[in-house]
């Protein structure tokens, strides 16, 4: 595409690809944990950080990382302790975060376009230094998720068993919370606060309809994330659509297509006479997405 000869489009594409790869690698643990929407909550909190950054004229992204991390750790500690007040605490964080962000952005001299950039993403305004931040943080998230896969899988799959295995369950949970905060903050550039969870969760939901194991689900989800990010930016360039929303629309479209194909395939297999007993197809339960 000729549009990709512009540096800003190339930067947008690169940024989107990194996030498209890192977000599902983290999201799979959140889906496994039934915390598919946690990214949204943390994103709302990150917005307060953005507001603070704009107001005090420090880096909004840095402040967002700080706010999101505090929020994520708070959510994790609440989850670990009480079970009953967990959703109420989440609600407080969600709304407190977004309201605080809007108030702080309003107090600063920035325009509403500035707020929109964080609410809906602004990939095409990615500066070279933003791209470096995205690349470094994205690589850190990716390496952590891949390197600690067995341990994180064990903790998310059966926390009590992980405890009896002597794993540092609490440290791993906090690590997951912090990497979620980091992913949310860098994804905020790409798809915006309101669509963050989509990139973490939708590729996982799509992948798990056709995969049989955790590792293959993770690989397929990362491939799907990469595809949605790349194709979304291309679509934005060609059809002049909003880049962040295009990425999410394509991710959802892949989900619908794969769901229909998988259902069709199961139907064909069931109607065919089977000489030997074949294990039943895996039941698909969407992780709260």
């Amino acid at each position: 595409m000729s549009l990709f000869q512009y540096d800003f489009m190339l930067r947008a594409l690169l940024g989107a690809l990194i996030i498209g790869l890192a977000a599902p690698a983290l999201g799979i643990y959140l889906v496994q944990r039934r915390l598919a929407l946690i990214g949204d909550g943390i994103g709302h909190v990150a917005l307060t950080g953005v507001g603070a950054g704009l107001l005090f004229q420090t880096s909004p992204v840095l402040m967002a990382v700080v706010a999101a991390t505090i929020g994520a750790v708070a959510i994790e500690l609440i989850r670990e302790r009480g079970r009953t007040s967990g959703d109420l605490a989440l609600a407080l964080l969600f709304y407190g975060g977004i309201a605080g962000g809007v108030v702080l952005v309003g107090l600063s001299d920035s325009t509403s376009a500035n707020l929109n950039a964080y609410l809906f993403g602004a990939l095409t305004t990615t500066h070279p230094e933003d791209l470096i931040t995205i690349a470094v943080l994205g690589a850190a998230v990716l390496v952590t998720m891949l390197l600690l896969r067995p341990a994180l899988f064990a903790v998310c799959h059966d926390e009590e068993y992980a405890r009896v295995s002597g794993l540092p369950v609490r440290a791993l949970n906090l690590l997951l919370a912090i990497t979620t905060a980091i992913t949310v903050t860098i994804a905020m550039r790409a798809v915006g606060v309101l669509l963050i969870s989509a990139l973490m969760v939708v590729p996982v939901a799509t992948a798990q309809q056709v995969t049989r194991g955790f590792r293959s689900t993770m690989a397929a989800a990362m491939a799907l994330g990469l595809f949605a990010a790349g194709a979304g930016i291309w679509m934005a360039a060609v059809a002049d659509t909003a880049p962040g929303a295009s990425v999410v629309v394509l991710a959802i479209a892949s989900f619908v297509v794969v769901t229909l194909l998988a259902a069709g395939w199961r139907r064909i297999r069931r109607s065919r006479p089977q000489p030997t007993p074949v294990p039943e197809p895996h039941e698909v339960v969407l992780g709260g997405s």
């Binding site: 496994q32 944990r33 067995p150 899988f153 339960v285």
Partner: peptide
């Protein structure tokens, strides 16, 4: 949770 895991993957957690 809906995320599939193979029998071997679950058993491998016992090695951690």
């Amino acid at each position: 949770s809906g995320v599939p895991a193979t029998v071997a993957e679950v058993v491998a957690a016992g090695r951690l």
